[in-house]
Deep mutational scan, measured.
Amino acid sequence: MQRVNMIMAESPGLITICLLGYLLSAECTVFLDHENANKILNRPKRYNSGKLEEFVQGNLERECMEEKCSFEEAREVFENTERTTEFWKQYVDGDQCESNPCLNGGSCKDDINSYECWCPFGFEGKNCELDVTCNIKNGRCEQFCKNSADNKVVCSCTEGYRLAENQKSCEPAVPFPCGRVSVSQTSKLTRAETVFPDVDYVNSTEAETILDNITQSTQSFNDFTRVVGGEDAKPGQFPWQVVLNGKVDAFCGGSIVNEKWIVTAAHCVETGVKITVVAGEHNIEETEHTEQKRNVIRIIPHHNYNAAINKYNHDIALLELDEPLVLNSYVTPICIADKEYTNIFLKFGSGYVSGWGRVFHKGRSALVLQYLRVPLVDRATCLRSTKFTIYNNMFCAGFHEGGRDSCQGDSGGPHVTEVEGTSFLTGIISWGEECAMKGKYGIYTKVSRYVNWIKEKTKLT
């Protein structure tokens, strides 16, 4: 034993070699072989497995989906700052455009905790909710729209109204504003409101030439003092309507412009014939205590009207009353817009006519005020429907199939267009061939041609 100890002390290297040989010859039971080890760690190889990531292109799944990435790591994937920024906006807080917040056709661009709407022409605001041009839906104005110097929408209202708090709607500024039905039992019968379409306001006024200088022999019209197929109006439903009495009662109609003036057809009036105007009328054979009678003290036909040349060209006249009318729910003026808007309103496509005229061709006159909704007829169809001249200051309205029309005794009465609950004068009943005849239409004086003249002559002093 002493000898062994001496050998170990003198030859430590020998001992180490012996131990190493023993270990190498022993069977290893701690580690699995290569094949079995792979069965336990069965993990798919990654895209760049075996390579240094710093030297390969980034992978979106590896960089940002398996674990949260930084902007720089995302930049490695896209290799483009702009594309990385677009991805980053949604990656950080989701897609803010998912709810489609942009209105009126706006395009949404996502941002971090926010979004941006790219608005089409005519709109602005956070969600493109603000109209900035009158060309689109009248700028959301209830009545009139004008573009300011910086191309912003400025709404306005006709006389007797003021802008509401929203700067879009119009509200009454006087007790009985024009064009409004205020009798409670008839307010439910107000005709369907007309909503502004998209309009090209630059070209809204037709490029028409008034044929002022045409000389033409007097034409022989049949029954051209021209509501057939209409309905009984309720008291106060058309408070701007008046009836004219002269040699015979209810020979023509008219509309209240203001307390002192009536507008009617020029062919209705004769110099030297006494005319009485009755406002607030409903049943011409009954006294309903809503009527107001006034005498006409002055007749002003349009300066281009000449019955000797043509009885229905420039067929418009103004009547001055001896005493002002007292405005109330049964006696209310009709609204008159400017030339541009009167023309736009007419193009809405349908209007209402009213009167006490004959209820059928050569038949009896109506006792109760009649009204009828009539569609506008395109000019080409209008011209083809008659052998008589249709001037540019006239328009056609009615039904091709016949059966409904204005008729004798309705002449001078109103053709009105309702705009968001307020009625505007767009025409004056003038003439036609018979009444409600198939293929024939009622012919009306186009008020847009005469609004400046009306307003100039009827100013209240």
Rank of each mutant, 00 (worst) to 15 (best):
F31E: 15
P375W: 06
Q96S: 15
A307W: 06
A266I: 02
E285F: 09
R140F: 07
G122K: 04
K438T: 12
T218R: 06
L103D: 12
T445N: 04
Y352F: 15
V202P: 11
K234D: 11
D200W: 09
R43S: 14
E208Q: 08
T16D: 02
P375K: 14
N310C: 05
C18F: 15
W240K: 00
D198M: 12
A9E: 05
C18A: 11
G58L: 07
P12F: 15
G50K: 09
A317L: 03
D315R: 01
T422E: 01
E79S: 14
G236W: 05
G413S: 15
V368F: 07
E10Q: 07
S423A: 08
E231P: 09
F360H: 14
A265C: 03
Y341T: 15
L60P: 15
T276S: 08
D405A: 05
T271L: 11
D223E: 08
V227K: 10
F71G: 14
S350T: 12
H289T: 12
F251H: 13
F55S: 15
I390F: 10
C134Q: 03
S406Y: 12
E171A: 11
G253K: 07
V199Y: 13
V154T: 09
Q96Y: 10
G351A: 12
I7E: 11
G122I: 02
E340Y: 15
H267N: 04
P333Y: 00
F399L: 14
R83F: 06
S385M: 11
N135M: 15
S217R: 07
L376V: 09
Y115G: 03
H361F: 07
V359W: 11
D93L: 11
L189S: 14
R62F: 07
P44W: 09
C134G: 02
E165K: 13
E73Y: 05
R379Y: 14
V419Q: 05
V377G: 02
F238H: 03
N151V: 08
Y201I: 10
P197Q: 11
L103T: 14
F144E: 00
E129Y: 03
P12C: 11
A397D: 01
H400E: 15
V368L: 08
R191E: 13
L327C: 03
S70V: 09
S169T: 12
A192G: 12
V174S: 08
V181E: 06
D110H: 15
G253V: 12
N59M: 05
P177N: 01
T271Y: 05
E66V: 05
W431I: 13
L20S: 00
N5C: 12
L321P: 01
N304P: 02
E76A: 04
I334Y: 00
K68R: 11
A250H: 11
Q408N: 11
N313H: 12
P101H: 06
D223G: 10
E79I: 15
L318W: 00
C252G: 01
L52D: 07
A9M: 06
S217P: 13
F176H: 09
W453G: 01
T16V: 09
L23K: 00
N393M: 03
T342L: 04
R364T: 12
Y341V: 07
K247D: 03
D405S: 13
K247T: 02
D95S: 15
I428R: 01
T186F: 11
C28H: 02
N203F: 05
T426V: 00
R294N: 00
Q143W: 01
G409M: 11
N304H: 09
C178L: 00
E288L: 05
E288G: 05
E72P: 14
V183Q: 09
S114N: 08
T461K: 10
E124T: 13
A308G: 12
Y444H: 04
Q370I: 03
V277Q: 00
L52V: 07
L346R: 05
E171K: 10
F345L: 13
L319F: 04
Y391M: 14
V77Y: 12
K457R: 14
F87Y: 15
G363F: 08
V353S: 07
E159Q: 07
L383M: 08
S99C: 15
I390A: 07
S430F: 04
C170N: 01
S49E: 15
T190N: 07
T85D: 11
C396V: 02
N36L: 06
F176N: 08
E129Q: 10
K339F: 09
E270W: 03
L318Y: 00
K459E: 15
W431T: 04
N295S: 08
V77F: 06
G106A: 07
T342Q: 03
Y371F: 15
D249A: 02
P333D: 00
N313I: 11
N295R: 03
T287Y: 10
V377D: 01
E433P: 10
C407L: 07
K459N: 13
H415G: 02
V242H: 00
I443Q: 03
S184K: 07
R449C: 15
C178N: 00
F71H: 05
V248W: 08
D212Y: 13
S217A: 08
N393A: 05
L14Y: 05
K311S: 06
G280N: 02
R298G: 05
V242G: 01
Q57P: 11
G351P: 03
Y22P: 02
I210Y: 05
V326S: 15
S430W: 03
M8R: 13
L103K: 09
K339C: 09
E288D: 13
A173E: 09
S217E: 11
F71N: 14
H302V: 01
L19C: 07
E320S: 02
V263P: 00
G363M: 11
C396M: 02
N213G: 11
V368M: 14
G125W: 01
Y371R: 13
H415F: 15
K68I: 08
N113G: 07
I15E: 02
E231I: 10
T218G: 08
H267V: 02
S406W: 13
T422S: 05
K188I: 12
M8P: 10
S187E: 08
C119S: 02
Y161E: 00
I214F: 07
T271A: 04
V195K: 07
G125Q: 02
L32G: 14
L41E: 08
N343I: 03
C119K: 02
E61Y: 06
I262W: 00
G412T: 14
V242F: 01
E61G: 10
N166V: 00
T426H: 02
R294A: 02
I112K: 15
R191N: 15
V243S: 08
V353P: 02
V331Q: 01
G272T: 02
E270K: 05
N328S: 13
G105D: 06
L60Q: 13
V269H: 03
I297H: 04
C157L: 00
T461V: 11
V227N: 13
A436K: 14
C155R: 00
Y22V: 08
N59P: 04
Y22H: 06
E418H: 10
G106V: 02
G402N: 10
K152I: 11
T445Y: 05
K68A: 13
S329R: 09
G442M: 09
Y22I: 14
V174F: 05
N48S: 14
R75L: 07
N80P: 12
F123A: 05
C178A: 01
G122C: 02
L325H: 00
F395D: 00
N147W: 08
N452Y: 08
C268F: 01
G421K: 11
Y22K: 01
K459W: 05
A149G: 08
V30D: 15
A308N: 13
S187A: 10
I210R: 08
V4C: 11
F251R: 04
I443W: 12
T133F: 10
Y91P: 06
Y115D: 03
Y161P: 01
A9S: 13
G398V: 04
D131W: 07
I262Y: 00
T381W: 05
I17K: 00
V227P: 12
E129F: 02
I390E: 05
A9P: 14
E286K: 11
N213E: 09
G236P: 04
N127G: 04
T186Y: 09
V228W: 12
V451R: 03
G94E: 07
K137N: 09
H415Y: 08
E285D: 10
C102H: 00
D93E: 08
G412L: 13
Q237T: 07
E286T: 07
S350Y: 06
A317I: 03
G398A: 05
V416H: 05
V243R: 09
D223Y: 06
T381S: 05
V153L: 06
A265D: 01
C134Y: 03
S411V: 14
N283I: 08
D111C: 11
E67K: 05
Q216M: 08
